[in-house]
């Protein structure tokens, strides 16, 4: 039972992070390898807002979320806008370079020590006992709930609202979308904003649960196989991929070797790339040259 709970929590983490990868890739065909760092930035944003609004935790969390969304749009506006039309490799490398820059800058600003934003805001994180003898922390429970909420919201946004439909159109055929009066730069910036917002939200929740230091970016990188296994341009795929990767990881750690933790997602990824490179639900596409 505990294993099932662990899988659910880990899958939620991976799914929440990988929806950011999927959103950015689906709309602008760019793989953002800085997602882990952006997620961490969101969590550090909470550290800052928590010290500003220590009395009102709700305000602090909302401000951190807004900050993350603004960061995403800013990243697009300042950096990625210049990379549109460049080779895929250049865009991916730009995100990698951004990740390195952010990592250094974050250590400079907030130091490398472990931070506990939950304690700063006065949240406590009691253990909840579930039927069947499994236990998990409140924030983990919140994480699972948040995952469902985010995916429902994204589904609603992408299929029911004007901007969501514009976003899908831009992803499908950017030139045609531009012809029909869709502002591509605005749509891309919005996609980056939402992606970093969901990433930041994940970062905030993980930071509240387990503390915050420079290792968080690794979780972001580990979540990325989940997105790829499901298919880089499919949100349903990201969800399934997250469940598959999380199941494999939890089971292998439990039954084989705890050291495997860092490598399991990549093993699953390699297997998937050999069998079906475009993922479970992804669309087969003409893959690009360097």
């Amino acid at each position: 039972m505990q294993l099932v709970v662990n899988i659910a929590v880990l899958a939620s983490i991976y799914a929440l992070i990988s929806c950011g990868y999927v959103l950015i890739y689906r709309v602008s065909r760019v793989l953002s390898l800085a997602h882990g760092e952006l997620m961490m930035l969101g969590a550090y944003g909470l550290v800052t807002t928590a010290s500003l609004f220590a009395a009102q935790p709700g305000v602090a969390v909302a401000a951190a979320g807004l900050l993350a969304a603004a960061t995403g749009a800013l990243v697009y506006w300042v950096l990625m806008r210049r990379m549109t039309g460049e080779a895929v490799l250049a865009a991916v490398l730009a995100t990698i370079a951004l990740g390195i820059l952010l990592r250094g800058a974050m250590v400079l600003i907030w130091s490398a020590q472990v931070q506990h934003p939950a304690r700063m805001l006065g949240f406590d994180n009691p253990v909840v006992a579930l039927p069947g003898g499994a236990r998990l922390s409140t924030i983990s429970l919140l994480l699972v709930g948040m995952n469902a909420l985010v995916y429902l919201a994204l589904w609603w946004f992408l299929t029911r609202t004007r901007y969501g439909i514009a976003m899908r159109a831009a992803g499908q055929n950017p030139r045609l979308a531009a012809q029909r009066g869709i502002n591509l730069h605005a749509v891309y910036a919005l996609a980056w904003g939402i992606a970093v917002f969901t990433g930041g939200l994940t970062g905030i929740l993980i930071a509240c649960d387990a503390g915050l230091d420079a290792t968080m970016a690794t979780i972001g990188l580990k979540a990325f196989p989940a997105a790829l296994v499901g298919g880089l341009d499919s949100l349903v795929g990201a969800l399934c991929g997250a469940v598959i990767v999380a199941t494999a990881e939890v089971l292998l750690i439990h039954y084989v070797d705890p050291l495997l933790s860092d490598v399991v997602p990549f093993l699953v990824l390699t297997a998937m790339l050999i069998v079906r490179p475009w993922g479970l639900f992804g669309s087969r596409e003409e893959l690009d040259r360097v």
Partner: peptide, 13 residues
């Protein structure tokens, strides 16, 4: 160390 990281990323960009 951190400055190095940040500067390296910046130069690459």
């Amino acid at each position: 160390f951190a400055i190095n990281y940040a500067a390296f990323g910046l130069v690459m960009i």
